[in-house]
Amino acid sequence: MSELSPIVYIVDDDPAVRDAVAFLVASVGYSARACASAQELLDALDETRPACLVLDVRLPGLSGLELQRALSERRSVARIVFISGHGDIPKAVRAIHLGAVDFLEKPFDDQLLLDRIGEALAASSGDLRRRAGQRRQERKMSGLTNREREVLRLVIAGKTSKAIALELDISVKTVENHRQNIMAKADVASVAQLIGWACEPD
């Protein structure tokens, strides 16, 4: 599965800073998107791609920290690197607690910022992959009945049909029927293949 290219969003009300950061980010090959306000970001944010927000703490309207909370509530994959004009330690601490990658003071070291952007994008990308795996898993499992999921769990745990029948207090014949149904839905021929299907993310 090919992943979509990441985007670095820059949110700062100062157009010069915004454009400069976009320029820097673009110079190392990232696609950059500059936003003047939190609302503009919310409108533009693409949750299907790995995303990093370079976010000024102080913004007109919704502030940087408020935006962070809103994204967090939305379970956004975007990771945040805060930038700030003045070192506001309490704000920085809160931001980090809420999962920000870092809190950089302007003017910041370019390498540090790019490193943090890289980390943020990696994390975001990981999130996306994990979530994609979970979604597939859920989709696989969603084809099975509750009884079939119970049987599958015990099969993967290495239990025999007899032990499963005993544990679930059903007949061995019924267990065998469930196993055949599961293998048919997973489109596998052997138990080994079935275990592989159930545990591999893709």
Binding site: D14, A16, A20, V21, F23, L24, S27, K106, F108, D110
Partner: peptide, 19 residues
């Protein structure tokens, strides 16, 4: 802070150019 803004922009532009 107001002076810091252009300084940050200048530095960032300059680094971008270097890269």
């Amino acid at each position: 802070h107001e002076i810091n803004q252009p300084l940050a922009a200048i530095l960032t532009y300059a680094r971008g150019c270097e890269r």
